[in-house]
């Protein structure tokens, strides 16, 4: 069953990525796109596919996958269907550090300065929450620390915008915070990839423990789960993956809540089996949303993060209203 669902969503994801390669200001029919993918096309086609469209589609897919899996893992750990990758404060702290580089004008020094700062922020937030997890038994405490971190980061970001030296850097900050995968290069992806791969690997290795946690912390310990190790693994894994996602695309909300929620009933509500399908579906949702962003005939292109929130927030309310168990 899990395999069939993975195959189904995986096939849909590949189709969506292919569709993303077909759409754009230069019209490229399917045969030319395929020729370009195979490296057999004229230089112009190659440039459009390999430098512009493929990195963008893959960026959307990677970010969606990272957020989908992190969301599923955190929901399992915190035993709450409304938990999302940002709940531990990782996204906001990463965004804050990225905003710093724009404010002080060092983001222009190189293409990797901003993602580097974002990953740095994500790591610091992750380590803070992990340190708290070693000291407390209560997951509610972790959530509250995450909320505190988020609020503080948002406050400092507001301060930086307030004090922005000129309208251009303010516009840069706002644009970055809205979240987008436009104009991403393979270089950007390659930079974030190691963090993403490490995070995903840690989450997958710790997946089985999430199944035990569905009985509650105490029963899970009784089942033979090392609670501390389990928490650390999920916090580190989700922190790394989310940090990588923010480094690529800025902050993009709600994918991490919605994707696990949609696949959960098909996986017998098992938090362990949920990880991979959530990642695939998160990737699919963002690739499709990004196609939508490019197709909508607006004067300035809509940002992916804005569209994701517009769709995601009502679904969030719907999920909250329909919860079956306390």
């Amino acid at each position: 069953m899990t395999l069939r669902i993975n195959a189904l969503i995986g096939a849909a994801l590949l189709a969506a990525i292919l569709l993303a390669l077909l759409i754009g200001s230069v019209s490229l029919p399917l045969d030319r796109v395929i020729a370009a993918l195979a490296g057999q096309a004229v230089p112009g086609d190659m440039l459009v596919v390999w430098q512009i469209r493929l990195p963008r589609a893959l960026a959307a897919a990677l970010v969606g996958a990272a957020l989908g899996m992190s969301g599923a893992a955190l929901q399992g750990l915190l035993r709450n269907p409304l938990a999302e990758p940002g709940i531990l404060g990782v996204s906001a702290t990463a965004a804050l550090f990225a905003t710093f580089t724009i404010y002080f004008g060092i983001a222009t020094a190189g293409p990797l300065v901003l993602p580097l700062a974002a990953v740095g922020g994500a790591l610091i937030a992750t380590l803070l929450v992990a340190a708290a997890a070693l000291r407390t038994r209560s997951v509610v405490t972790l959530i509250l620390i995450g909320v505190g971190l988020s609020s503080f980061s948002v406050a400092v970001m507001a301060l930086l915008m307030n004090l922005a030296p000129n309208p251009f850097s303010l516009a840069d900050m706002v644009n970055w915070m809205l979240g987008t995968v436009a104009n991403r290069s393979f270089e950007n992806l390659a930079f974030a990839a190691p963090f993403l791969v490490a995070g995903v690997a840690i989450l997958l290795a710790a997946g089985r423990g999430l199944a035990a946690l569905s009985l509650g912390d105490e029963a899970a310990e009784g089942l033979g789960l090392n609670l501390k190790k389990q928490r650390l693994a999920i916090i580190l894994g989700a922190g790394l993956a989310t940090g990588a996602a923010v480094a690529i695309a800025g902050s993009i909300g709600f994918v991490g809540i919605v994707a696990p929620h949609i696949v959960r009933p098909f996986l017998r509500y098992d938090p362990a089996r949920l990880l991979v399908p959530s990642a695939l579906l998160g990737a699919f949702i963002l690739v499709v949303a990004d196609i939508g962003v490019r197709l909508l005939p607006t004067d300035s292109e809509l940002k992916l993060g804005v569209v994701a929130s517009l769709i995601g927030a009502p679904i969030f309310v719907w999920i909250a209203a329909r919860r079956r168990l306390a």
Binding site: R79, N80, P81, S214, L215, G216, E218, A219, E221, G222, R264, R268, Y269, D270, P271, R324, L325, A326
Partner: peptide
């Protein structure tokens, strides 16, 4: 070990 508190969060079979 069967603890006294047995909170379930997911409607699992």
């Amino acid at each position: 070990y069967l603890p006294q508190m047995r909170p379930l969060v997911w409607p699992q079979p």
